[in-house]
Amino acid sequence: MTNLTIYQQAVREMYEAIAGVDTVETCKIQYNAVIEGKTSTHEADVYWEFTDGDLTYKAVIQAKEQASLAELFVFLRMLRDIPGQVMGVIVTQPVYQKDIKDMAANAGILLYELTQPITGEIWEPVVSNVKVSVDKVWVKQAKEQAGLDDEPIQVSVEPKYSFIYDEAGNCLDTVQGIFDQYGKQQQASGRQTIVHTFAAPTFLQTNHALVPFIKLDNITFDVELVNVNQWAGVDMAADILESTVRYFGK
């Protein structure tokens, strides 16, 4: 395979990501596609046809080093020759000319402007399947002392704002800090299940005035190294889907 430009690579990643889209039904997805128009056939980097159950939409995706007015006119003629509700997508470098942006917006052409290369691999730890286990006996006693029955004790859902304290009331860390501790130790791809226990009594801050802390038992979660550049295609595919549906007024 010849070396791809960053724009062609982005289109390739879109194509690969579309296979994982489950919010709509994909009717057809083609790479290096040949599309039958009303008057002639057309070539495109990617052709995506999908339905939301009520309407069928089509997206024609092209990689271009530069999106000029001339390029837009040629692309627009293609789009108008393809029957149905067709959205055009051009993956290109940043566009600064207002007339080009205006024409693209009015014609139903999404300009996907890349400001930097997305090629290469950037590996970062990703945490999932988080379960915070508390000392149920301790929590029950604390609720009884506060005069509470089955009222739930709310805690922060944001790991970086979930503060952890020792028995003396000193802040030790956050839940995010625990995630980061194991993420830095992760050396290879592959999911690992972590059960983080506490050697001394440890407490999680709550949002409840009468029970400001609850005693922790352990925190269980999965951590794996993921190439975050793989997410670019997922984000772009989702953006195309949303833009297409919005443009056609649904």
Rank of each mutant, 00 (worst) to 15 (best):
L241V: 01
D81F: 00
A59M: 02
T23E: 14
N227E: 01
L204K: 04
D99I: 08
T41Y: 13
W231L: 13
G84Q: 07
P201F: 02
P201R: 06
M87N: 06
P83Q: 08
T174M: 09
Q230I: 00
A33H: 10
I219Y: 09
N207D: 11
G20Y: 11
N129M: 04
I194H: 10
V226I: 10
T197W: 05
F179K: 01
Q181S: 11
D239A: 12
E13G: 13
T41D: 08
L114F: 02
G108S: 07
I61M: 11
T51C: 07
A105H: 12
H208R: 05
V228H: 06
V89P: 13
M1L: 12
D102M: 03
D22K: 15
V89H: 12
P159K: 00
Q66R: 15
V211L: 04
V126W: 02
S40A: 14
P159M: 01
D45R: 06
E36A: 12
I100T: 14
I90F: 14
I240A: 05
D166M: 03
A44C: 09
W123T: 14
Y161A: 09
K140T: 08
V130S: 05
K250V: 14
A67K: 11
V34T: 12
V46D: 10
V130D: 04
Y96F: 12
S189D: 14
P117E: 05
H208N: 15
T244V: 03
T174S: 15
A237K: 03
M78P: 11
A199Q: 15
E13L: 10
Y165M: 01
A232G: 01
V60R: 13
D99G: 10
A168Y: 11
A238M: 08
Y31V: 00
F50H: 06
V228N: 02
N170W: 00
T115N: 14
A104M: 10
W231Y: 09
V11P: 11
A10M: 06
L114I: 04
E71R: 07
A44P: 13
V89K: 07
T115I: 00
H196L: 01
L110Y: 12
K98Q: 15
Q62F: 02
T206M: 01
M78F: 00
A237F: 04
T206L: 02
Y31A: 10
R77M: 09
R191C: 08
V130P: 03
A44L: 03
Y161Q: 14
N218L: 03
V74H: 07
V137Q: 10
V46G: 09
E158H: 07
N32H: 12
R77P: 04
S128C: 00
L4A: 12
V24N: 12
L114P: 08
D52L: 04
C27W: 02
E25R: 10
